[in-house]
Simulated assay, not measured.
Amino acid sequence: MVRVRTEAKRDAILDTAVEVFKERGLDGASMSEIASRLGGSKATLYGYFPSKEELFVHVALRVAGKQIRGMYEDLEARATDDPQRVLTEFGKRLLHRVLAEDATTAHRLAVAHGRIGNLGRIFYDAGPGKAVEAFTRYIDAATKAGRLHAANPGVAAHHLLALLESEIAYRRSLQFGEAISASEIDQCVDRAVPVFLAAYAAPLTGDKAT
């Protein structure tokens, strides 16, 4: 008999896994407990998610995605606003979410197990890839509005994300030093955005110079 995978079942697994990971953490949680709470078997669970690590990454991306989806929509809508204010506000909100414990753990797992089940690609597409897409749309719209000047919005989007993460990338990946404080995150963004705008801000003329 062929087991049919369904989106509803996948969602049920993720919903249950969210609760177990919240209660137990990555190390304390087990696939057995998640399966038990679902009322199914571990075999079914592994049919959807080959490992606990992969399941955790999907859970983290699901939680983060719900929290930042509205942020991305709001970003493009502000294409005519002052880009320094927009990118500073958005950059801080984004980095605070990226550096939350669950997202940081998911990032490390994706790096460590990236080739297993295509986990690295899955993490990129649902995480950094979404940020690049949102930045690309915003930069394109802001360029058309005369606020930015980017011949290739996609490249500019990669530059922006890299600048925002430039001071924290190695600390997050290699797990050295103390946790990055909220004030440090804000300072990183405050330094990164002017560097981006030095390259991509549109010259201000006429009434835009006020």
Rank of each mutant, 00 (worst) to 15 (best):
T205F: 14
L119Y: 06
H96M: 10
M71S: 09
T80S: 11
V57Y: 06
D27W: 00
R137G: 03
A192L: 13
A103Q: 12
A103Y: 00
S183H: 06
A106C: 11
R115Y: 13
R85I: 13
G65A: 07
H58E: 13
L164Q: 14
L109A: 06
T210L: 01
R5M: 13
A202Q: 03
A12R: 09
D11F: 00
E178I: 08
N152G: 04
V2F: 11
G47H: 14
T80Y: 05
R171T: 05
R69Q: 13
L75M: 04
V111Y: 15
K9S: 09
I34P: 09
L204I: 01
A77P: 02
H107I: 00
E76M: 06
F196D: 06
H96K: 13
I139C: 06
P203D: 12
G127A: 12
S51R: 02
S183D: 14
S183T: 13
Y72D: 00
E54K: 14
G129T: 04
G146K: 03
R69K: 12
R62N: 10
S30D: 06
H113T: 04
I139F: 12
G129H: 09
G127D: 14
L174I: 11
R147D: 06
L55R: 11
R108E: 07
V86M: 01
L119A: 08
D140Q: 15
A60R: 05
M1K: 08
A169S: 12
R37I: 00
F176K: 14
R24C: 15
G39R: 13
A142Y: 04
